[in-house]
Design a protein around this nucleic acid. Sequence first.
DNA 1: GCCAGTTTAGAACAAATTTTCCACCTATTT
DNA 2: AAATAGGTGGAAAATTTGTTCTAAACTGGC
Lengths: 284, 284
Amino acid sequence: MLQATPDDLPALRSEISSRYQELSPRLKQVASYVLDNPNDIALETLAVIAGRCAVQPSTIVRFAKAFGYRGASEMQRLFRNEILASAPSPSYSERIRQFQGRSNAVDWSRPYNVMREFSEANIIGLEHLREAVSEAELDRSIELMQGADAIYLAGVRRAFPVAAYLAYSLSHVEKRAFLLDGVAGMTAEQSAMLGPRDLVIAVSFKPYAKETLAVVETASANGAQLMVITDNRLGPVAKEADLCFEIKDAEVRQFRSLTASMCLAQTLVVSYAYKFGPDRDRSK
Amino acid sequence: MLQATPDDLPALRSEISSRYQELSPRLKQVASYVLDNPNDIALETLAVIAGRCAVQPSTIVRFAKAFGYRGASEMQRLFRNEILASAPSPSYSERIRQFQGRSNAVDWSRPYNVMREFSEANIIGLEHLREAVSEAELDRSIELMQGADAIYLAGVRRAFPVAAYLAYSLSHVEKRAFLLDGVAGMTAEQSAMLGPRDLVIAVSFKPYAKETLAVVETASANGAQLMVITDNRLGPVAKEADLCFEIKDAEVRQFRSLTASMCLAQTLVVSYAYKFGPDRDRSK
DNA sequence: GCCAGTTTAGAACAAATTTTCCACCTATTT
DNA sequence: AAATAGGTGGAAAATTTGTTCTAAACTGGC
């Protein structure tokens, strides 16, 4: 046994993950329970844990030994220490004093706080999405998609993930979809072939990229249908659009997010798939 | 004994406080230790607790009995339950299941309903994200990013938008970032040049794409640092990872979303930018 | 300074939990 | 098809842990 036995919980977790494949079926069972329910391991007795993952107590011991411990108890100590370390157990008097309102000055040097802020902002953004997008617009968008021979996706920089997601998932519901990705500088050639039976979905946010703008103009000149996902109805890309979704994505201190746009994209694909897709419960 | 024996921790706390004065010296000693170190009571053995407050084990038992319990173990159960209740978060799967129950009654032929469902599911997913990602993992991820000469992003199919977003936005905070995009089938050549001073961030969800798996294996073989964003710690890509984020993205009727992963990506970039980026002069 | 009532320390005991062991099963190999 | 190796379930053994008990110490009143 070359590997030193893990002596803290993160180490054990990664050790379990990396050796998971080579474990026996019962040990795999224990492994995933251990990773998912650390608190149970810390607090409950072996018999209880064993019951919860439908295994004999001896199997837990075997599991612990497989990772180099002398017994299950020694492994449990790791989980207990983790709890002791994570909750600094403030004294009772302190705990009472803790009823102070949470300060709104968040310390951004702690990544965890950044994540809390973003998830919060994104939640608000998603709630807003429901009000900002009308049922009529959505219905129309599905019609447009359905009526098109093929759908071309345009979006660069920040908007690129949305366009890429649309291209990928539309293909997966068996809609002909092509990402105008600009590889080898072919965008002009690709968009020159757009016709009235094609739909272009352009995704563009401020500052509006000239590449996307060029596609929009070509599409419009050629009489192709044009759907736009943007952050401002009055922006340059929205002007020629047959249908325009105005999405105000979450923004925290100048960092704009994409969750609302992605959610809309998902909605478009799934709604299309449900109405016109090949079969209604297959997508990856 | 008129007073009913407290059956939750807050009740016990106030009971201890109010009867503190009438307790014997040794029991006072125990009382204050119990109030100040709830975690110890929950996790440690009676002998250890006794040692910590310089008392005999039997005294702890007498203390428990003084408050109406049948023994010290019964009192410990209160403290253990408190821990289980405060840090559960196994409820995600249950919430999702509840949500799906509601969701099945919805008429999916109306796109507007689809959007409502997705935004709702994504909100639940974002709430879960906060519980599922630990501060230590985030801190470590920023370290890894900071320590790398360059960051390479791997992710195809559904995971591609996340990888693309990371590549784009990392470049914008002036971190050398390259998307292993497989254009012209160069992925093998590109990843062969990875070295120990490089960081690979691989994004991969079930069913794990072999392209990403190949990058992961090459990176691992070459000694490059490896950070993984995936949906299962026990999946194939997580095995070799130096750091693994396990993200359970929202899923509605088999359509999986990306919002939580995107939110994490955003967090990584912004946290990095705040700590090490080009303009660190933001207030707060 | 001595006595009744309480409280306490420590050991003895009892219960519980963990660990070991062995027979049986399953899959793989020859 | 038989043999072997590894994995598994279950029960017995060993250990740890919780509880009880008793003698001793302490307290306050006389």
